[in-house]
């Protein structure tokens, strides 16, 4: 337990340079804009006075290092300034929209896991047989289906003809559980299919590798039941690397969410990002980028701790 706390502390310290790196990139978004960012934002026809006003508001009159320090100090306190478009507090906007993206991503991940585990494992156990071919073709289709197309297809096939699924928008499960689930199901499938396909292939390959391992031969030579060997010994070992990939796939999941939110009209972070980019709303873009970076670091920390709990060969923090 003490080791776990020490490890967590160490990992949190490591998160600092990672997030600082992310902050540099985020900060540079505005700096790398060709010419005068304020002019760029406001457009050619804006008056010189308005441009000067915006320059002061964005702090562009200060030297670059002072701008960066101010950005980092503010960001560390959760202050990304105001949206240029709506004058809303960026942090407030993020907190308001985050639950939708979280609900969508978690539901997508859940569908991916629930589908991929049995399909991948059955594919490996039935290698070369009918079930395996179905699993492989299904995985290939899943990986090659673009999520925006799948989203539109789901809307046309399920949401349009039936009253059960809304065509547009999403309800949070905390507000109304039933509506929350029905409004999340279709976008979650659109988002989770590619993940499900990827995890299916990973698990199938992992299981096939594990079933070749010496310990499986040993178990067989000692008369241990085939089901116990497959579903207890081999499955656990095949799942371990998969968990790491799930953590790393968070980025892809959030990227997919941007598109799926757009297709289903979900007021989440992804939709907010697209709007901010079109509006050249730099504070909002910066806030979203930093939020995604923090989420990525946090999830991967969680995954590492989980893996270490499940795999005795991993010793947290190196030396025993």
């Amino acid at each position: 337990m003490i080791r776990l706390v020490r490890y967590l502390f160490g990992r949190l310290l490591w998160a600092v340079p990672v997030l600082l790196g992310a902050s540099v990139v985020t900060f540079m978004i505005m700096q790398l804009t060709p010419g005068d960012p304020a002019r760029f934002i406001l457009g050619q026809r804006a008056s010189e006075g308005a441009v000067m006003e915006l320059r002061r508001e964005l702090g562009l009159h200060q030297p670059i290092y002072a701008q960066y320090v101010e950005f980092v100090v503010d960001a560390a306190q959760g202050d990304f300034g105001q949206s240029l478009q709506t004058r809303e507090d960026v942090m407030g906007m993020l907190l308001q929209r985050l639950p939708y993206t979280a609900q969508l991503s978690l539901a997508g991940l859940l569908i991916a896991v629930v589908v991929s585990f049995p399909v991948g494992v059955i594919g490996a156990v039935q290698e070369g047989k009918f079930a395996d071919h179905v699993s492989r073709v299904g995985a290939l289709l899943g990986i090659s289906t673009p999520n925006f197309w799948l989203g539109l297809l789901l809307i046309l096939v399920f949401a349009v003809p039936s009253e059960g699924f809304p065509i547009f928008g999403m309800t949070l499960v905390t507000e109304d559980p039933i509506d929350g689930i029905t409004s999340t199901l279709l976008p979650a499938i659109a988002l989770g299919t590619a993940q499900a396909a990827l995890l299916t292939r990973l698990l199938r390959g992992g299981m096939l590798d594990e079933l070749q391992e010496g310990y499986v031969r040993t178990a067989r030579a000692y008369g241990i039941d085939e089901r116990e060997t497959t579903y207890v010994y081999a499955l656990k070992n095949a799942v371990l690397p998969t968990i790491t990939v799930i953590g790393l796939q968070l980025g892809a999941l959030l990227g997919g969410a941007v598109i799926v939110e757009q297709v289903f009209g979900i007021p989440g972070i992804g939709r907010m990002a697209i709007q901010a980019i079109f509006n050249k709303d730099f504070p909002v873009i910066q806030g979203i980028t930093m939020l995604v970076a923090v989420a990525f670091v946090a999830v991967n920390l969680l995954v590492d701790v989980l893996c270490a709990q499940l795999d005795p060969r991993i010793i947290l923090g190196g030396e025993k």
């Binding site: 010496g214 310990y215 040993t218 000692y222 241990i224 070992n237 060969r313």
Partner: peptide
């Protein structure tokens, strides 16, 4: 298998499951 005839393998480190305790694996047999 294991009850009447049993086998000792060449590479014991490989013949055991790395994520189960040794005692548990013998227990299971």
């Amino acid at each position: 298998r294991g009850g009447e005839i049993s086998m000792v393998f060449q590479d014991p480190m490989n013949a055991f499951n790395p994520t189960q305790t040794v005692g548990r694996q013998l227990h299971d047999v």
